[in-house]
Design a protein around this nucleic acid. Structure first.
Length: 124
DNA sequence: GCATTGACGAAGG
DNA sequence: CCCTTCGCCAATG
């Protein structure tokens, strides 16, 4: 009855937990040879202004699944802003090139052509 | 417990 | 058109 609900917002907590999982889930669905952005993923998840959290999620992604294709997620300029978090840093570019994506000076070439928007491709 | 820092991005000057 | 500010929110100092 009068239980003191300590956790005021359990629902929100759950959503936050799911957010990380959702990021991984979407990332796993990025086709080979295609890339997307932090903002696109955030927008698809309904938290468009929280693109930073997407990056944070991927930062600790390897703790959940080291095989996560995080190299397919770049910033909105098509730059490999997260390459320094790979091991070694050059791994990100190497993986992308292996998938047929052209990378020059840490920037994805033909970015608009290989861009994969989850909101469009996964249907929204 | 406040300040700083990000794998970002949009808006304002 | 470049630079700064701000929102976002978790982690870290």
């Amino acid at each position: 009855m009068k239980k003191k609900t300590k956790d005021s917002l359990p629902v929100q907590k759950e959503l936050q937990r799911n957010f990380f999982q959702d990021v991984y889930d979407v990332t796993r669905q990025i086709p080979r040879g295609r890339v997307t952005t932090y903002g696109a993923i955030a927008a698809y998840l309904g938290t468009k202004s929280s693109a930073r959290m997407v990056g944070w999620a991927l930062n600790s992604a390897h703790l959940y699944d080291s095989s996560l294709p995080a190299q397919r997620v770049v910033n909105r300029n098509g730059q490999l802003s997260g390459k320094m978090h790979f091991n070694p840093p050059s791994k990100m570019e190497a993986l992308l090139k292996k998938e047929g994506i052209r990378v020059k000076d840490d920037t994805i070439q033909n970015f608009e052509k290989v861009f994969w928007d989850p909101a469009v491709e996964l249907g929204w």
